[in-house]
Amino acid sequence: MTPLIEGRGLTRRFTRGLDVAEKLARALGANIREEVVHAVEGVDIAIRQGEVFGLVGESGCGKSTLGRVLAGILPPTDGELLWRGRDVAGLSRADRLEMRLAVQMIFQDPMSSLNPRKRVIDLIGEAPRVHGLVRAGEVDDYVASLMQRVGLDPAYRRRYPHQFSGGQRQRIGIARALAVRPKLIVCDESVSALDVSIQAQVINLFMDLREELDLTYLFISHDLGVVKHISDRVGIMYLGRVVETAGADDFFAAPNHPYTVALLKELPSVKDRRRDFTPIRGEIPSPLDPPPGCAFHPRCPRAMPVCSADLPALKPVAAAHWSACHLNDMPALRPASETAA
């Protein structure tokens, strides 16, 4: 089956150009280069119709940038983006508009994504009206039905965002995304800022909407607990690359990559009391200057000489389970053998 959306070798770099003084200095022989942030490097990703794909990783790993590239907000520096099997770069204007509407994004902080000077009715109703999905006279009813669907009282549709609580504002963001009848929703840390009890309400709403409207989600989060609950498949990123991807059950039960293993072990749980922490050393390196070979090798407890020389490829290690680790090339040292023991 053709995936709903697919990225092949997706790469996104951010370049800071030189200012006048630096250009002058370089002309005079100083060793100054442009600074390039390697946010996303050669990512292959495919999301199938109807599934929830969880994308996890720590701050600065490039998961939000990848989400924005897939949502069509940021053009990729390199690589192909395919929508229903067709290259987005080659789409006609009309088809590209259709794809833009079909992929919607919900952000972490609704206060910075909702215009504070607009009323809820305009925040939710403007896009479908402009794109001709509803007639001007029907906007009021349309917005009311959307608000009802996401659990907001339609009587509040003439209010401003600041008159709502954090959880309600996130519901406004969800209603706004739904207003243009999307197929794929990219949720970027959409429940991370919410209190536990409110977070559970919003997660339930996401799952209900998925069934009612046949939605597909790319669910980006640093919270492994939430991702474990909601996802069908999971991918984990480290310094711009996907290092492991698998079905959710497999991912959490039999992680392969040493980074995944370490991250899952450090996840605080209410079941572990006064436990010993065995943190992985160091911090995520700067994407300005990624280490050679496997980017995780400076922190990896099982690093070998080859790890600092060659970049490991993402290879299958089990059914529908891919991992990028040199240990998999040495059967005696398979990383999974440690977790199984």
Binding site: G167, M207, H229
Partner: peptide, 24 residues
């Protein structure tokens, strides 16, 4: 009890979570 039940870790995957109704 409500706080503990609302945690995603306490429900099985795909099951509905049990949030505390309403808000503070």
């Amino acid at each position: 009890r409500g706080l503990l039940d609302a945690l995603p870790a306490t429900a099985r995957r795909g099951e509905r979570l049990r949030p505390i109704p309403g808000m503070a």
